[in-house]
Design a protein around this nucleic acid. Structure first.
Length: 219
DNA sequence: AGGGTGATGTCCT
DNA sequence: GGACATCACCCTT
C-alpha cells in the first residue's frame, strides 16, 4: 500500500476521512481504458461500537472479514441485487470503513453509460448505481487499493465549496446511531443520491471553480 | 407509496 | 432448516 494513502486513511478519525474523501478521485483500469470519477458522497461506519455497521460488536463473518484488514483494503458486499463499495480505514484489526455513495464521472463516461444505460442524471447517484456504472462486482472484495485495478488517487483533487453532514441512509431503529451525522456530500453536486434538482449547482456542481480546471472531457 | 428482487447473517425452532 | 432483517434499485400505482 502506498505510504501517503495509508497515512490519509489512518491519521485521523474515520468521519474526518469520509469528509476528506469528497473531491478525491477513483480510478479504475479496464480492458477498454481508464474510468475516473470524483467522489461526491460518503458515509462513515465506526466499527464495533456502531449499531449501523457490519462490524457491530466486532462480529466477524465470511462477508465482512475485509473490515479487519489494513487501511486501503476494498470491502465490497452485496445488498439485494446490488454491490456496495467501501474503503477500509484505520489500523488492521480496527473494523472501520467509508461507504462510497456517489461519484461524478470524469474520464470514460461513454463506457460507464454502456455499463448502465440510463440518463446521466441517474447514472452514479447511489452506491449500487455507481458500481453498475463502473462494471464492478464482488471480485475486488478484500483486495488492497493500488494492487487492484481500482485505485484511490489523492491528486488530482477537487475542492467542495461546502460539505453537508446528515444522518446515514437506511439506518433504522439503531438508537443514537440512526441520527448521528456520518453522511457527507458535496452541497449542490448533482451526483449525490436523493438530491433534488432545485438544490443542484448546474454551473460548478458544488466544486470550488478554481479546482475544476481541465481534465474533464466528458461533462 | 408500495411491491419484487434474492445474498448473507442472525435468531430461532 | 426456516423466518426475518438488511448501508438499493426498479417498476408500477
Amino acid at each position: 500500500m502506498d505510504a501517503a494513502l495509508t497515512a490519509f486513511l489512518t491519521q485521523r478519525p474515520t468521519p474526518e476521512i469520509a469528509a476528506a474523501l469528497l473531491g478525491k478521485q477513483l480510478q479504475l483500469t479496464t480492458a477498454t481504458g481508464q474510468l475516473t470519477a470524483w467522489i461526491t458522497e460518503t458515509e462513515a461506519y465506526l466499527g464495533a461500537q456502531d449499531a449501523g455497521a457490519h462490524a457491530f460488536k466486532n462480529h466477524q463473518t465470511t462477508r465482512n472479514s475485509a473490515l479487519w484488514q489494513p487501511a486501503g483494503t476494498i470491502y465490497i458486499y452485496q445488498m439485494r441485487t446490488q454491490f456496495l463499495l467501501n474503503i477500509v480505514t484505520q489500523a488492521a484489526g480496527v473494523p472501520e470503513c467509508v461507504l462510497i455513495r456517489g461519484i461524478e464521472p470524469d474520464r470514460g463516461l461513454a463506457q460507464m453509460q454502456q455499463n448502465r444505460s440510463v440518463p446521466l442524471q441517474n447514472l452514479t447517484t447511489g452506491p449500487g448505481k455507481l458500481m453498475q456504472a463502473l462494471g464492478l462486482d464482488k471480485t475486488l472484495n478484500n483486495t488492497p487499493l493500488t494492487v487492484a485495478t481500482l485505485n484511490l488517487a489523492l491528486t488530482p483533487v477537487r475542492q467542495p465549496r461546502h460539505i453537508v453532514a446528515g444522518p446515514r441512509v437506511g439506518i433504522l431503529n439503531k438508537g443514537d446511531w440512526t441520527t448521528v451525522p456520518l453522511r457527507y456530500y458535496v452541497a449542490g453536486n448533482p451526483f449525490v443520491s436523493q438530491s433534488k434538482k432545485r438544490d443542484q449547482d448546474q454551473q460548478n456542481h458544488g466544486w470550488q471553480p478554481s479546482t475544476i480546471s481541465g481534465g474533464n472531457d466528458n461533462l
